[in-house]
């Protein structure tokens, strides 16, 4: 069952429990502990000012986050894969407009063996906004069978927009499979042209393609209502 909650500060998900949380209002700082074997999906639809979320994931537990960020503050995510065979997925969409400046930081620490992490961060930045993405993957000494992946994709929609990306992979163990990618670009010109030949004006075509770019994240949400909520809310702030 989907549970609606507000302003998490400390939350422990008991061992073995399965939970889907939709967080309506965010606190400045939230700590979540996912105990052994628990499976959590966590959706954050709204944001306030700065907020930091740290999650500790226990043995065999799974934690999956989707969060939408519009740059009214900074977003700091940190994940501690603390138990063996812990799994973490973090999907972030950021949409910055106006003269917002925002830091989106996401850090994953593989502190136990056989842990898997997947980070997908997609951003669209327009007007004079400035986004900084800092993504870390940290694999300490002597860890084994680690699989970490991080992807960051951003599009610039205006000449005055800026995106800075600073991925950081620090690996001190050899039994790892790690990949990361980061791309900063714009909408595909051929696609824009194609839409316009079909009579769609440029503004609509750009909106449509931006939508499609970000929807990759939302489309993986299984709960239909939540998926549609995200899509409805994923618009640039005035």
């Amino acid at each position: 069952m989907v549970e609606e909650i507000s302003e998490i500060t400390r939350l422990t998900v008991d061992a073995g429990r399965t939970a889907v949380f939709v967080e309506k209002q965010l606190s400045d700082k939230a700590e979540i502990v996912v105990e052994a074997g628990a499976r959590v999906k966590h959706y954050r639809l709204h944001e306030g000012a700065n907020h930091a979320l740290s999650v500790k994931i226990g043995q065999g537990a799974s934690y999956e986050l989707v969060t939408l960020h519009k740059g009214n503050g900074n977003l700091t995510l940190s994940f501690d894969l603390a138990g063996e065979e812990a799994f973490c997925r973090s999907d972030v969409v950021y949409m910055l407009s106006g003269d917002r400046k925002s830091l989106i930081a996401s850090d994953v620490r593989h502190n136990a063996d056989n842990t898997v992490s997947r980070q997908l961060v997609k951003g669209a930045v327009t007007d004079k906004a400035f986004a900084t993405f800092e993504g870390g993957v940290f694999i300490p000494y002597e860890r084994k069978k680690i699989d970490g992946a991080q992807q960051h994709r951003a599009i610039l929609l205006s000449p005055d927009a800026t995106v800075k990306a600073v991925p950081r992979l620090e690996i001190y163990a050899d039994d790892v499979k790690c990949a990361h990618g980061s791309a900063i670009g714009s909408l595909n010109k051929d696609q824009l042209y194609y839409l316009r030949t079909r009579g769609i004006d440029e503004a609509d075509a750009r909106a449509l393609l931006t939508r499609a770019f970000l929807d990759e994240v939302f489309d993986s949400i299984e709960e239909e209502d939540i998926r549609e909520d995200f899509k409805r809310l994923a618009v640039f702030e005035k």
Binding site: A154, I155, T162, A165, P167, S182, A183, I184, S186
Partner: peptide
């Protein structure tokens, strides 16, 4: 990586 021009692309 710093992208400051919408027609430019960076891929890493």
């Amino acid at each position: 990586m710093v992208g400051g021009n919408p027609s430019a692309s960076i891929e890493h």
